[in-house]
Nucleic acid binder design. Structure first.
Length: 448
RNA sequence: GUGGCCGUAGCUCAGGUGGCAGAGCGUCGCGCUGUGGCCGCGAAGGUCGCGGGUUCAAAACCCGUCGGUCACCCCA
C-alpha cells in the first residue's frame, strides 16, 4: 500500500452510539421540541442552556456510587490541564449554574441537551442521546412535585402516547433514610447467600440499589425486605401523601412503586419514572426524575431543595413509533415558482424568466409565505413534479404568454384549477387565500 | 463490559446443496418539445460491510474485524 492511502471508510460514519437526524425524521424532533417548549412556557419555565462539558467534579460529587459517573463518563483533559467531562446527566449542570448565579427562587427552567455516556450501544441506548427536562430550585412544596410530574405526563400525553405508566416512590430524607438503610442492611445481611454477586457487594455501599436488582433470586429476597415507605418520617410521609393527593386531584394516574430506586444517587423524597408498555425491550424508561433536596448543599451551595426530570427524546420517538403516533409531518409550501420560459441552463445566464422567478420568490418569502423553486434548468414538468413533492399548495408559473401580458399562471395543486393573475397582484392574491382570517373562516372558502 | 443473531442498490428485501448480482419502492429521463398525482417505457445506481483463508470458481463455506440488533448490565 502506498503512503497517503485513504483511511478506512468506517471513519466517515457517525461514531458508534451516535446518529444523524435528517429530514423528514428531524421534523418529528422539531414538533416534539416545540410541544415541550410551549408546555414549559405555559407552566412558567424559562430555557436554560449549560455547557456540554463541566469540570469533572460537578458530576463526580453527585454520582460517585453510580455507573453513569463511575464507568460511563467521557472524561478528558483540555490543553490547560483542566479535567473535564461531557455531560452524562442533566441535573448536576443546572444545579451548578444555580449555585453560580444565585437566581431568585423558585428558579424554574427547562432544557434540551445532548447527554454522553460510554455504554454498549443498542436501540434506545446511545452514547449521545438527547433529553428534554425541567429543574426547579429553591422550594420544597409538594405542589411543585405535582406540577413537575404533571408537566411530564401532559407532554407525553399531548404527543398521543397512552401506553405508559407512571411509577412514584419516596426515598425519604436525612431524617428517616439512615434508619431505613440500617434496617435494610441488616435484613440483607441475613440473606447474603441468596443474593447475586452484584447485590452482595452493594449491601454496604448502596443497599437501595439491591431493591432494583432484577435477578429473580434477589427479587425473591427483596420482596420481603423492609419497605422504605413504612420507614418514612412524619415530614416525608406528609409530603408523599400530598404529592399523591395532588396527582389524584388533577387526574394523573400513577402507581406506588416501593422499590423504585433511580440510577443517580442524589435523590431524596419523591422519585418517579415513566415506562412505556409499548416497548418490548429493556430500554422502556421514557423518562424519570425526582427531588434532590441536598444536592445544592453537597455541591457547596446554599441549602436549596430541588426537583426535576429528564425525558429521553430518542426513546419517546421509539415509543411513538410503537403506538403509531407523531408521524413525520408531511412537507408543505404555500407556493412554488416555476420557470416556464427557460431553459435557464446550469451555470449560464438567467433565462428570460429567471430574474422574474428570483424576484417573485423573494417577495413571497419576505411577505411571510413559504415558497420554493427548482434549480438546475429543469423542464416545466419536472418543476411541477417537484412542486407536488414539496407539498406546494399553489404553483405560480411564469410563462412567455402570460409574461407578455404582465401576468402569471397560478395553479391550485389541490383542485387542479388554473387561473391567470396580474403579476402585480399575485402576491396579494396568494395572501388572500392562504392567510388565516380573523373570523376563522377558511381562506379557501369563497362563499358568503 | 459479556454473550447470541444479522450485514446484498438510497430504502425494504430475494438470491436451495459454491458457477454471469436481482425485485419492489425511491431517483432521473421519455410518452405529454408549457403543467404534478394515475398509467406505460427506459436509464442511472452495487468494492455483496471490510480484511484474510479454502477452492478451478465465494454474496454463499472458514477465521478475524467493523457496524447493527437482542439479552445481561445500565439507564433516557
Amino acid at each position: 500500500m502506498q503512503s497517503g492511502s485513504a483511511p478506512p471508510a468506517d471513519v466517515y460514519r457517525a461514531p458508534v452510539g451516535t446518529h444523524d437526524v435528517l429530514p423528514p425524521e428531524s421534523g418529528r424532533w422539531a414538533a416534539l421540541v416545540a410541544a415541550f417548549a410551549g408546555r414549559a412556557a405555559r407552566f412558567g419555565y424559562g430555557l436554560v442552556m449549560t455547557p456540554a462539558y463541566e469540570h469533572i467534579e460537578v458530576f463526580q460529587r453527585v454520582g460517585e456510587g453510580t455507573d453513569v459517573v463511575r464507568k460511563e463518563m467521557y472524561e478528558f483533559e483540555d490543553k490547560g490541564g483542566r479535567r473535564l467531562a461531557l455531560r452524562p446527566e442533566g441535573t448536576a449542570p443546572v444545579v451548578r449554574a444555580y449555585i453560580q448565579h444565585r437566581p431568585t427562587p423558585p428558579w424554574k427552567v427547562w432544557y434540551l441537551s445532548p447527554h454522553f455516556r460510554h455504554e454498549k450501544a443498542q436501540r434506545g441506548r446511545y452514547r449521545q442521546h438527547h433529553q428534554l427536562g425541567v429543574e426547579v430550585l429553591g422550594v420544597d412544596d409538594p405542589a411543585l412535585d405535582v406540577e413537575v410530574i404533571s408537566l411530564a405526563h401532559g407532554f407525553l400525553t399531548s404527543l398521543g402516547l397512552s401506553r405508559f405508566r407512571l411509577a412514584i416512590n419516596s426515598l425519604g430524607d436525612e431524617q428517616c433514610r439512615p434508619g431505613y438503610l440500617e434496617a435494610l442492611r441488616s435484613y440483607l445481611r441475613a440473606h447474603v447467600d441468596e443474593l447475586c454477586a452484584d447485590s452482595r457487594s452493594r449491601i454496604e455501599t448502596n443497599p437501595l440499589r439491591v431493591l432494583d436488582c432484577k435477578n429473580p433470586a434477589c427479587v425473591a429476597v427483596t420482596e420481603r425486605a423492609p419497605q422504605l415507605l413504612e420507614h418514612l418520617c412524619p415530614d416525608c410521609k406528609t409530603h408523599f401523601e400530598a404529592v399523591q393527593a395532588g396527582l389524584d386531584a388533577i387526574g394523573v394516574p400513577h402507581e406506588i412503586a416501593p422499590r423504585l430506586v433511580r440510577g443517580l444517587d442524589y435523590y431524596t423524597r419523591t422519585t418517579f419514572e415513566f415506562a412505556s408498555e409499548a416497548l418490548e425491550s429493556a430500554q422502556n424508561a421514557l423518562g424519570g426524575g425526582g427531588r434532590y433536596d441536598k444536592l445544592a448543599e453537597e455541591m457547596g451551595g446554599p441549602p436549596s431543595p430541588g426537583i426535576g426530570f429528564g425525558i429521553g427524546i430518542e426513546r419517546v420517538l421509539i415509543a411513538c413509533d410503537a403506538e403509531g403516533v407523531l408521524p413525520a409531518p408531511a412537507p408543505h409550501l404555500d407556493a412554488y415558482v416555476v420557470d416556464a420560459v427557460g431553459p435557464a441552463g446550469v451555470g449560464g445566464p438567467l433565462g428570460t424568466a429567471g430574474a422574474e422567478v428570483t424576484a417573485l420568490l423573494a417577495e413571497l418569502r419576505e411577505t411571510g409565505l413559504s415558497a420554493d423553486r427548482a434549480y438546475g434548468g429543469r423542464s416545466v414538468r419536472a418543476q411541477t413534479k417537484a412542486a407536488d413533492r414539496a407539498g406546494a399548495r399553489y404553483v405560480v408559473l411564469l410563462g412567455r404568454a402570460e409574461m407578455e401580458k404582465g401576468a402569471v399562471a397560478v395553479r391550485d395543486m389541490v383542485s387542479g384549477e388554473q387561473v391567470e393573475v396580474p403579476r402585480a397582484r399575485v402576491v396579494a392574491w396568494l395572501h388572500e387565500r392562504l392567510d388565516p382570517r380573523i373570523d376563522g373562516t377558511a381562506p379557501e372558502d369563497p362563499g358568503s
